[in-house]
Structures are given as structure tokens and as C-alpha cells.
Simulated assay, not measured.
Amino acid sequence: MQTITGLYDSYDDARAAVRALEDAGISSDDISIVTNKANGAEVEGQGSYAAEGAGTGAGVGAVAGGAGGLLTGLGLMAIPGVGPVVAAGWLVATAAGAAAGAIAGGAVGGMVGAMIKEGVPEDEANFYAEGVRRGGSVVTARVDETRLAEARTILHQSRPVDYNARRASYQAQGWSRFDETAQPYTREQIDAERQRYGSNRV
């Protein structure tokens, strides 16, 4: 299995990517979505859960898609440095475990640590976490190598941001890596980000 990821300015685009992956036969158990709460995402199902301890993962369990698909299991949690997010899938449980491990052993925790654990390069994991901090949505899927090209095409068809261009833009603003101790973006800062990239859709 390999892990592929897409960052979306629009929650609707991220949601479309999840549904397209499911429609292609990729199990909900192998898909995750994490979106900044400011992105207009609503908890669609009954799978709400709280991340006690400001995102340390206390009490957060895996949220499986079940018969209704991954999006019926959306719940609200907090991620240090990001703030409130709406999320579902395996990455949520992995992030909780990574955060607990970071507290115990000084490892990289939270969303970045969870992605690294699943094979996402550290620099990319930092970028995706920063993208969520700035108001975006991340879709991550674990797929068999035989379906890698198909899954990448699905993510691309849902209009993800251009990784290289967006990363270069972040770096031009002085960014180097995701900082869990930083203050989450305010609504005004997120709106400014959307205007910067011409992505006013939610």
C-alpha cells in the first residue's frame, strides 16, 4: 500500500474527491479527510467526537465510513497549530496515536507525525498540515500499487492545489515548516489566503 494526498482550497472539491475514490471501489477504511472548520464543512453524520486535551487524541477513535461512506462519519476535533477541524478516517486515529507518542517520546506528533508514519515524506507532511492551518482540506488515501495511477487521477480531477506552486508561495512568505505551537489562522487570515489564490469557494 502507498499513501497519496491532495490539498484542496475548497471543501466541496475535497468531498468530491472522497466520493470519487469510494465510487472507484477504494475502501472508506483507507481514505481520510481533514478540513479546517472555517472551510464551511458541516458534520454530516452522527459520528461526532471530541478531541479532549486540545488535539492530543484523548478519546479519539477511528471513524469508519460504514455503509454510508466515509463522509457520514465526520466529527469535530482540534489539532495543535491548526485549531478546529472536521475529519474522518484512518488518519484521525493515527494522528491521535502519533500525538500520544510525541508526548511520551518527543517524536513528531499530530497530523504531521501521522502522515510520516504512513510514508508521506516529512517535508510534504509539513506542507499539507500548513495547508489545513490556512483553511484548506486534505484528502489522503492508502492504495495498492496497482491502483496508484488511478487514485492519483481521481485526486487530480477534483482540482487540488498545485503542490509546487503553493509550497513556493508559502516559502516566499517566510514559511519553512508546520509549527504546532503557532496560533491557528483566524477567519480573517483564512479569507486573505483565499483572496491571495483566488479560491473563494468553500
Rank of each mutant, 00 (worst) to 15 (best):
P84M: 12
S158Q: 12
H156Q: 15
G106I: 13
A129S: 11
L70E: 04
V82E: 03
Q171E: 15
A64L: 12
G75N: 04
N200G: 12
T5C: 13
I26M: 07
A51H: 09
L91R: 13
T94K: 14
A129I: 07
Y11D: 02
Y8D: 04
V143T: 15
N200V: 12
E52A: 12
A104W: 01
A24V: 01
W175V: 04
V139P: 02
N36I: 04
A24T: 08
R134C: 02
K117S: 15
D191C: 00
E145N: 14
G57N: 09
G75L: 04
A16E: 10
E122A: 14
I116K: 15
Y8F: 15
R19Q: 15
G113T: 07
A16M: 10
S10C: 12
L74F: 02
V139L: 03
R147Q: 15
V86R: 06
L76G: 03
A88C: 10
A129F: 05
A102D: 06
W175M: 05
Y49E: 08
D144I: 09
A17N: 08
D30L: 13
L155G: 05
E130L: 05
G135S: 09
K117I: 06
G136M: 06
S10G: 03
A64I: 05
T153L: 03
T94C: 03
E122C: 01
W90Y: 15
I154P: 05
I4S: 10
V63F: 06
A149S: 13
M1L: 12
T186L: 04
V138Y: 01
E193T: 11
D191I: 12
R19T: 11
S169P: 00
